[in-house]
Simulated assay, not measured.
Amino acid sequence: MPDRNQAALNFLLTRRSRPAKTLTSPGPDRDTVHTILTAAARTPDHGKLEPWRFVVLSGTAMARAHDLVAKRGAALGHDAAKIEKEQLAYARSPMAVVVVESPIASEKVPAIEQTYSAGAVCLALLNAALASGWGANWLSGWASFDADFTRDAFGLASHESVAGIIHIGTETTAPPERPRPDLDAKTTWIET
């Protein structure tokens, strides 16, 4: 039998994202964020291309993103409720880590595998933040798909996109457990 890391397994079996609207200050310090990013970077990565990067927002950068959401939302003709919903995460959580998909031209590694790697980084980052004792939530939203917003708020190049935005902070309330998938309905066993 392989060695079992029961603490890690227990964490994975009980992990639960914390809604960004329930996060508040303080957020983690730079050393803690560095550890979280180090854990996130230990993700599957076919060809060792590292087709992703991080943009860490805190302090006035969060307020700037909040304001840019309003500006871009108005320019796109979104209604006030849609804009406000997008702004809330930047208004409440003290920090966000933007995982940027930054694909690398490769004959060996298909683009879709690079997308999967960026997504894996998002989940690893989320879990590392939660395992470190912080509240965390993986979000996207309409602004993260708007090229003007992502360029102005996060400095993305034209070939890059947002894989996810992980908001991190101190949780104010623990969320209730939610229904989980019916594994029997979602699993096919092929044994012969």
Rank of each mutant, 00 (worst) to 15 (best):
M1T: 10
D3N: 12
D3W: 00
R4G: 02
N5H: 13
Q6H: 08
A7K: 01
A8I: 01
L9I: 14
L9A: 14
N10E: 15
L12G: 00
L12W: 01
T14R: 11
R16W: 06
R16T: 08
P19L: 06
A20Q: 07
A20G: 05
A20N: 08
A20P: 00
K21R: 11
T22I: 00
T22V: 06
L23S: 01
L23F: 08
T24C: 07
S25W: 07
S25L: 10
P26T: 12
G27F: 01
P28D: 04
D29I: 01
H34A: 15
H34I: 03
H34D: 13
L37G: 12
A39G: 10
A39P: 00
A41H: 07
A41R: 04
T43R: 05
D45W: 07
H46Q: 14
K48D: 06
E50C: 10
W52E: 09
W52V: 02
V56K: 08
T60F: 00
H66V: 05
D67A: 15
L68N: 04
G73W: 05
G73D: 10
A75Y: 07
A75E: 15
A75K: 02
A75Q: 14
L76G: 09
H78S: 04
H78Y: 14
A81D: 15
A81K: 15
A81C: 00
K85Y: 12
L88K: 13
S93C: 13
A96V: 13
V97I: 15
V97S: 02
V98H: 00
V99H: 05
E101W: 10
E101V: 11
E101M: 12
S106F: 06
Q114V: 09
T115Y: 11
T115L: 14
Y116M: 13
L123N: 05
L125Y: 05
L125S: 04
L126K: 05
N127Q: 13
N127W: 00
A128C: 12
L130R: 03
S132V: 05
S132Q: 11
G133D: 04
A136D: 04
A136H: 06
A136F: 05
L139A: 12
W142C: 07
S144T: 14
S144W: 04
A147D: 13
D148A: 15
T150E: 08
R151W: 03
D152R: 01
D152E: 15
A153E: 03
F154G: 02
A157R: 12
S158G: 09
S158E: 15
H159V: 02
A163C: 11
I165F: 04
H167S: 08
H167P: 07
H167G: 02
T172E: 13
R178I: 08
P179I: 11
P179S: 15
R180W: 05
D182E: 14
I190E: 02
E191M: 12
